[in-house]
Amino acid sequence: MWSVTKLTATALGAALLLLGLVACRNEAQSAEGGGASLTITAPTEGESVTSPVDLTVQVSGTEIGPTSSGNDHFHVYVGDNYEVVTSTQSQVDLPGGEQTIRVVLAQANHEETDVSDSVTVDVTGGGTTGTDQGGYKYGGGGD
């Protein structure tokens, strides 16, 4: 017969394992985005733009807002740099030349989903010089 201590420890371990499985299952679900979708409506694919460029994202099936509100938000990637954006409209500062802007939908706890979109644009003027700037400055205005 197991002692009370062993039984309790086993029960707690099982509870933790179950919690972990629930969390993992939730990560799988959250990776699918829970039915949400997003589309970059501006700029358009192949457009010639000047920096900073106005970024507009159309999203359905979820709400976008600050992380403290419990709403989803975007992770906007340009090359290796990224920025957290809590609005469907923002400004992206880009270096010159051909650049790809990728927007990924993230949950309030910063877990990224599989929901994303990207556009490639030609930055012809006003671009920043460096690429390793540790994150661009984005305008995160209200929704």
Binding site: N26, G70, E111
Partner: peptide
């Protein structure tokens, strides 16, 4: 725990948990 499982709880629950 509530914030780590956003799809298990409401948005309001997440916001309160955040605070």
């Amino acid at each position: 725990v509530v914030m780590s499982l956003p799809e298990r709880f409401t948005q309001k629950a997440f916001a309160v948990s955040f605070d």
